[in-house]
Design a protein around this nucleic acid. Structure first.
Length: 679
RNA sequence: GGGACUGUAGCUCAAUGGUAGAGCAGGGGACUCAUAAUCCCUUGGCCGCUGGUUCGAUUCCAGCCAGUCCUACCA
């Protein structure tokens, strides 16, 4: 019997659970349930990640305390998880006494090992709100191209990358005041000193091959950079014991929450923490998304080693969720919250669908809404559940045959397939596991077809034969219900009721049940109604629209406020300021691709007569050169020429949109001619 | 800019150094026990593009294109 501790990444207390999060929790829950069915000693640990500046900002916006925010969100998270049948052995919080104590212990270990160094950091401080500002809370003028209102890390106009401290006229996004640059000491972890531990641990046993390649090709290729683990107060989190006024960065205390929550579980169950975290015989498996690989494969092992804890046996990494091939989108209604899903659809569907998609590699998985319905209906309802539903009523009165009949080796075949299916589950290849199970179902239905119980029923002399055929069909069905137990526990529980026998162990699939009366067969799962999917998406759209309306105050066109939210309106200017800007109608007389440029198209713009301008425009992703020629556009005619890698750009064309392939050139209504001023 | 991964039938995904497979969808037939379920047959593919290695490549190598993630004081 193996001893296994499993975790999912801790959901952040700043937001609600959505169907993207659920990929991970469903994946983990399936794996944990599988381990428990196999008879292994396995606990599933998770917690809310509660610290950081974002929580404080939310609390301030909602005019309540941080504790209120995280308490309410934790309850919401747990309710959402419970709704999807995700069963934690312990669900904790990073804001717990256990976590504070463990953070201090590991900190001491890090200090003893000489891994902590102190360095000064320059950071903006919002004097009105009294907080230090992370880069994403600062906007200002790009030091490179002079574009105003750019984010704190890179310019959306010229793509220049810079430090927030380099911004000209920085503005705090929290108070709209000018922040003050302050120099404060921070505590860093010198991860390079733990290189040997990390490098030895990173291999094909502990991590997916792709991740091993990635880490070896990037981080391990050069000295590991020091990681800033402290934040000056005020900061919602734990104060660092030997560093007054400073707090642990959220990514320090978050993973320690795994241990702290285990500790809570131990206290509640009379167990020793060391038996789980300082025990080489205990396997620790972390399930995470690909975005937080660094924290779990570089930072975390270094911390564990310093705290004298064992390193994880495996980190299992999954990709992101797309819906109908695209990123989830609020305005398209595909950003579906867990509660919203549950309002419309059965959680079993999503568990099954995700299972058919999940594998052991790091690939994004797509929720194709049409496939979602047809797949669940044809496989789960049409093939699997159908076996019981077409045979149970024939033996409602007689019960199952007293001895298991000759079935041509089907039961034995199903029993043997259990090993392969188990291996797929173990490896995290749930798509292979479900496919193997459906293949079995595809053997069971023809069996029923060939033996036609509905024909046997017509002949009273064939009563025994009828009972035998149904005994076989129901036993095959029972095996499938066991194999699908980790994925669709809700259904398997109902099957347990049908057979009047809890189906909780994998090995039950090895022995047929005979000579017993079944409980009345009831529908195990409703077919997916595509109209309900549609309703769910529509509800999402409406919620997004309502939210947009709320934000935009008034507006009869129902437009989303996303764009305005992303880029607020600039400070007021005078007419004279505006008059400095010379906008002109121009015709694209020539447009060419720029070899080697990622985004640029070279344009020759005519202002009428012989006056032309050479302009490089970052619109390659949205426009083909041949589609541009002849088009009338609006250009900034008096913009200072800018030397670029590919030549000098003498102006810019005006366009709207967030960028990439969403760029919309402005063009005048018909009648305008090149050279006319736009005012 | 650097690193990693992905790109196979309309859709979602397998497999493989030797003329490509499944499920769903589409087409044809059978059945009527079953949640308009099931069963049988069947139409679909320059295996992203271009080169190279090989007797032979979808599979190995290189380059390119597209997408995703990480990383980076590139215009």
């Amino acid at each position: 019997m193996r001893q296994i501790l499993v975790t999912s990444a801790l959901p952040y207390a700043n937001g609600h659970i959505h169907i993207g999060h659920l990929v991970e929790y469903i994946q983990t829950d399936i794996w944990v349930r599988f381990q428990k069915m196999r008879g292994n000693r396995c606990i599933y640990i998770c917690a809310d990640d509660t610290h950081g500046a974002a929580i404080t900002l939310r609390a301030q916006a909602e005019k309540r305390s941080e504790i209120d925010v995280i308490t309410e969100m934790s309850q919401a998270h747990q309710a959402d998880f419970a709704g999807f049948g995700i069963e934690f052995d312990q669900y904790g919080s990073t804001h717990s006494d256990e976590n504070r104590a463990l953070c201090a212990d590991i900190w001491e270990g890090l200090n003893k090992a000489g891994l902590i160094v102190t360095e000064d950091v320059e950071q903006f401080f919002d004097t009105e709100k009294g907080v230090y500002l992370a880069d994403r809370f600062i906007r200002g003028t790009c030091p490179n191209c002079g574009s105003k209102d750019q984010p704190g890390d890179n310019c959306s106009k010229c793509d220049a990358v810079y430090e927030a401290t380099e911004l000209i006229d920085p503005i705090s996004q929290i108070s709209n005041s000018t922040p003050e640059l302050r120099r404060t000491p921070h505590k860093f972890i010198d991860v390079e000193k733990a290189r040997d531990t990390i490098a030895n641990w990173i291999d094909d046993d502990t991590l997916p091959e792709q991740t091993v390649n990635q880490l070896k090709g990037s981080y391990l290729h050069e000295p590991l950079k020091q990681k800033d683990l402290s934040r000056p107060g005020p900061y919602f989190g734990f104060e660092i014991p030997d560093f007054e006024g400073n707090y642990w960065y959220v990514w320090y205390d978050a993973p320690i929450g795994y241990i702290a929550t285990t500790h809570q579980w131990c206290k509640a169950n009379g167990e020793e923490l060391d038996a789980w975290w300082r025990n080489e015989d205990c396997e620790i498996h972390h399930f995470i998304g690909k975005d937080i690989t660094y924290f779990h494969t570089i930072l975390w092992p270094a911390m564990l080693e310093a705290g004298d804890f064992q390193l994880p046996a495996k980190v299992r990494i999954h990709g992101f969720l797309t819906v109908d091939g695209e990123k989830m989108s609020k305005s398209k209604g595909t950003f579906v919250r867990a509660t919203s899903y549950l309002d419309h659809l059965d959680p079993t569907y999503l568990r099954y669908y995700y299972a058919t998609k999940l594998n052991s590699r790091i690939e994004d998985i797509d929720l194709n809404l049409e496939e979602f319905a047809t797949r669940v209906n044809s496989e789960l309802v049409g093939k699997v559940v159908n076996i019981a539903s077409r045979s149970a009523k024939f033996v409602a009165k007689t019960g199952l045959s007293d001895t298991y009949p000759d079935d041509g080796g089907l039961f034995e075949k199903f029993a043997k397939a259990g090993d392969d299916i188990a291996a797929h589950y173990e490896a995290g290849d749930f798509s292979k596991a479900t496919r193997a199970i459906i293949e079995l179902a595809d053997l069971a239905n023809p069996y029923v077809e060939e033996n036609a119980p509905w024909e046997l029923k017509k002949d009273e002399t064939k009563a025994q034969e009828l009972q035998d055929v149904c005994t076989v069909a129901l036993n095959l069905f029972r095996q499938l219900a066991i194999y699908l137990g980790p994925v669709i526990p809700g259904i398997t529980e109902k099957v347990s009721t049908l057979f009047d026998e809890p189906l909780t162990s994998w090995d039950q699939a090895k022995t047929p049940v005979t000579g017993k009366t079944l409980n009345k067969f009831k529908h195990l799962v409703q077919r997916v109604d595509p109209a309900k999917i549609e309703a769910m998406i529509e509800a999402g759209k409406e919620a997004a629209a309502a939210e947009a309306k709320l934000n935009a105050a008034a507006g009869s066109w129902d437009d989303s406020s996303d764009a305005l939210d992303a880029e607020p309106i600039q400070p007021e200017i005078s007419f004279d300021d505006f008059a400095k800007l010379d906008l002109r109608v121009a015709r694209v007389v020539e447009a060419n691709e720029v070899p080697k440029a990622n985004k640029l198209v070279q344009l020759t713009l005519s202002l009428g007569g012989d006056e032309t301008r050479n302009v490089f425009a970052g619109i390659k992703a949205a426009y083909k050169p041949e589609d541009l020629e002849g088009k009338l556009v609006v250009m900034v005619a008096n913009l200072a020429p800018r030397k670029m890698k590919f030549g000098v750009s003498e102006g810019m064309v005006i366009a709207a949109g967030p960028g990439k392939d969403e760029i919309y050139l402005l063009s005048p209504d018909s009648g305008a001619v090149p050279g006319q001023r736009v005012s």
